[in-house]
Every structure is written in C-alpha cells, then in structure tokens.
Lab assay of single mutants.
Amino acid sequence: MAASAHGSVWGPLRLGIPGLCCRRPPLGLYARMRRLPGPEVSGRSVAAASGPGAWGTDHYCLELLRKRDYEGYLCSLLLPAESRSSVFALRAFNVELAQVKDSVSEKTIGLMRMQFWKKTVEDIYCDNPPHQPVAIELWKAVKRHNLTKRWLMKIVDEREKNLDDKAYRNIKELENYAENTQSSLLYLTLEILGIKDLHADHAASHIGKAQGIVTCLRATPYHGSRRKVFLPMDICMLHGVSQEDFLRRNQDKNVRDVIYDIASQAHLHLKHARSFHKTVPVKAFPAFLQTVSLEDFLKKIQRVDFDIFHPSLQQKNTLLPLYLYIQSWRKTY
C-alpha cells in the first residue's frame, strides 16, 4: 500500500487533545456564526451592495467568503475584532481572482478581468477605488493598515499566469505559485494584525505553500471532471502515471504514490512551519489557523491510503469550527 511504503514521513496525529474535556472553552465561534445575517447573495444585490440601503460592502465580502471560501471565513471569524473586516476584504479579493479561471470560457475574457483587478489595485493606492464592493472594502483595508501593494499585485499576476490550462511542470513550480498567492495572502494578513517579524514571515511562507499544494490536491477530482489535470508532471512521470490515469480515476498503487509524494511535500512544509513556532510572536498565530484544515485533509487522505478520489475527501468536517476554536484558544498553530 502507498501509505505503508512511505509511512515514515507522517508524524503522530495532533488533533487529539488529552485532558481537553476537563476545561470548557468559552463560547465564541458558534455564537458569532449565529449572529451573522444570512440572506442569499443575488446578482441584483451584488450590483447594489455598495449603494445606500443595501447590506453594505462589508456584508457582501463576508457573504462571498462564506459561500466560496468557507474555511477562510471560519478562520477570519476568530481574528481580533479590529482586524476582521480587513481580512474579510482581503480574502474576498482572493476569491474574486480565484473564480475568474473557472467562470470564463475564453482566456481573453479572463485576461480582461485580471486587467480590471490590476487597475483596481492601482486605483486603490491612488484613493480612487471603483464602485465595486470588494474594491471598496480592500481600499478601506489598505488605508487602515498601510498594506504593501507588492503582495496584492503578486496575487493578481500569479492568478493571471495561471489562466493557462497547463499542469505544473514540477513541484517547485506549484510551490512558486502557492508562494505568490497563498503566502502573499498571509503576509498581508500579518500586516493587518500589525506583525512585522521575520520568523512570522518564514512560517507564512511555508504554510502558504502547504495551502497551495493541498488546494491543488483537493481540486483534482473537480478538475478531472472537466478533463483537466494540474498535478506536477515530474512526480507523475517518476511513477509512470499519465494524465489519462487521473481522468479515468485510476486507483492503482502508482497513482496513489503520486498523491503521496505531493501530500508529503505539504506535510513537510507544515511540519517545518511549526518547528520554530517558539520564535514566532503569539500575536501572529491567528493568521495561521488554516493549519487546522490543512492537517485535517492530510490526515483524511492518509486514512484512505492516498486515494484522491475517495468520497470521504469531499465531505465537510462538521467539527472544523470546534477544532479551529480550540486551536485559537490554545494559542498555537
């Protein structure tokens, strides 16, 4: 089996927390979720979201995140109150960019949308954001926290390059993509939290790379249903696996070995980020709550012996909000 052949990389499970039942964490995340308004986002309300009498641009960002990046939404709820709305805006910006690729039928249209967001970032730093909910909220975040323009532009530029429907040539190319998107998002989150620390940035770099790799793995069944495969070609070739094997949902050992190798790289990034947690300011830990969902996925895929098409991998963990709150309460990542 794939797991038994390579099992030495995987460390002990961390979500089991001995003695936790003896201490009762304060009510927090679930209460916040219940208090949030929840009407559906419609095209009509989106168009009017920044106008008078609408929910408001902040509510639009929150709803977009809740629907399109639920794990990011849950993590954002546990940030300090003064930072929450800015991170909602930042993550909503990322969602807007991420959904361009799947929402257009022609690359030219995707490039036009990316050009809109490039100009939007430029206009935000000229205090002239367009009348668009996410743009307005992002402008507020930039003004409030003096966010670095370079990180925002890196996210747009990398998403634009990724409009080509090509597999990553190697794991390094996937890591570079993750660094310029997910890690950049974390650098900006640290700025919102008021953290300027080399060790925190180092952790953000590795956690962002782990996030990018896990996202690529999780999306494999969806991409396969659209006749697309984006997994690193070098690892596929190493194990003699073709793109057609993934399109046919082949579950042979060599296919699972490909998934094992890729998942192991995410695991190593996560492990390395945690190896120097004592040197990272505690104030930075809330920015890294996504490690909970990353670890949850890596454990699940290990349990199914790296069968990327196993139905259990597509099921939401209903206990994730609780695990996130516990992680926040324990002040760790």
Rank of each mutant, 00 (worst) to 15 (best):
K140H: 08
K119H: 09
S105P: 12
L152D: 01
L193R: 03
M112C: 11
Y70H: 15
K300W: 05
D201P: 02
H223A: 11
K154C: 06
I124Q: 00
A200Q: 01
R227M: 10
V142D: 02
C126A: 15
R113M: 06
W117C: 06
L270M: 11
K149I: 04
L198Q: 07
L74E: 01
A167E: 15
N317I: 07
L294A: 12
I192G: 07
L186S: 04
V134S: 06
L319H: 08
T291P: 02
K101N: 14
A47I: 08
I213F: 06
E96T: 10
V255N: 08
V304N: 06
R303Y: 07
D201V: 05
F297Q: 06
N146S: 12
K283P: 12
L289D: 00
S45I: 06
T57E: 11
G53Y: 13
Y168G: 01
Y323N: 15
D245C: 12
L313I: 11
C216E: 10
P80Y: 02
R113L: 08
G110A: 12
L231K: 00
H206V: 01
G56C: 08
L294Q: 11
K253I: 13
E106G: 10
K118Y: 05
V280F: 03
K107P: 13
D165M: 10
D102I: 06
S225E: 12
Q243T: 09
V241T: 09
N162W: 13
V100S: 07
P321T: 05
A273F: 03
I109Q: 09
R91M: 06
R169A: 12
Y177T: 09
D58R: 09
T318I: 09
T279L: 15
I235M: 08
R227W: 14
K107T: 12
P133Y: 06
R274D: 01
E82Q: 15
I213E: 00
K278V: 15
S83A: 15
S85E: 09
V304W: 04
Q115R: 10
D296M: 09
K166I: 13
F309D: 01
T181F: 01
K154V: 05
E244V: 05
V100R: 05
R226H: 14
A98G: 10
Q132M: 13
V95Y: 06
K253P: 14
L247C: 14
Y333L: 06
Y187T: 01
R169C: 10
H277L: 07
M153A: 11
S76D: 02
H202L: 04
P221M: 14
L186V: 08
L62Q: 11
T148C: 12
M237Y: 12
F230P: 09
P286C: 10
S105C: 14
H310K: 00
K278I: 06
V87T: 11
K107V: 10
H145Y: 15
A141K: 01
E122C: 09
D252T: 15
T220R: 03
V156H: 03
L268F: 08
G208R: 03
L97E: 00
L313R: 00
L163H: 07
R159Q: 05
Y260N: 06
V255I: 12
Q327H: 07
L190S: 02
D305N: 11
Q99F: 11
F276C: 06
R249V: 10
I195L: 13
L163N: 05
G208D: 02
R150V: 07
K209P: 01
Q115K: 09
L185R: 03
K316I: 12
P80F: 02
L65R: 02
F288K: 01
H223N: 15
T215A: 09
P130S: 10
R248H: 05
E160S: 14
A273S: 11
R150I: 07
I109D: 07
Y323P: 02
V255T: 13
I124D: 00
M233Q: 11
S242Y: 03
A81E: 14
K161I: 10
N128R: 14
N254L: 09
V100Q: 11
P80T: 08
I195E: 04
Y260D: 05
A266T: 02
G194W: 00
I207E: 00
G53R: 14
R68W: 08
N254G: 15
V229S: 13
L298V: 04
K253T: 14
L270Q: 00
T181W: 02
S76Y: 06
H223Q: 11
K172H: 10
S312L: 11
G240V: 02
A210K: 01
T332D: 13
I155S: 05
H202M: 05
L97N: 03
I326C: 13
S85D: 11
F297Y: 13
L247K: 05
R330H: 07
L138N: 00
Y323G: 11
R256V: 03
V156K: 00
R218C: 05
P129T: 08
F288M: 04
S184R: 10
F88D: 02
I213Q: 00
Q211N: 13
Q182K: 06
N128P: 03
K300T: 09
T181M: 05
E137Q: 12
L188W: 01
I155D: 01
S50M: 09
F297W: 14
W151S: 05
D157L: 11
L298N: 02
D296N: 06
S183N: 03
A273D: 02
Q182A: 13
F297H: 08
D127M: 05
P232H: 06
S183F: 00
A92Q: 00
S183R: 06
P130K: 04
S312M: 10
A263D: 05
I195C: 13
V304Q: 05
L147D: 01
Q243G: 06
L79K: 05
T220M: 11
K316V: 02
G51M: 09
Y177N: 06
E96M: 11
L74I: 14
G194H: 05
A203E: 00
K143S: 08
K196Y: 07
A92N: 03
Q211F: 13
K196S: 06
L77V: 05
D307P: 00
R169I: 10
G194D: 08
V46A: 10
K300V: 06
H267A: 11
I155H: 05
D305G: 08
D127G: 10
R330I: 12
A98P: 04
V258N: 03
W55C: 14
F246P: 02
H269L: 01
R91P: 00
V121C: 06
T279Y: 09
N170C: 06
K143H: 12
R84C: 06
E179R: 00
W117K: 00
K172E: 08
K107E: 10
Q265H: 12
K209H: 03
K196P: 03
R256Q: 12
S264F: 06
L289E: 00
V241I: 11
N176R: 13
L193A: 03
S225I: 09
F230L: 15
H223T: 07
K300Y: 00
R274V: 01
A48D: 10
K101Y: 14
Y333T: 00
E175D: 06
Y222A: 15
K161P: 03
V280Q: 00
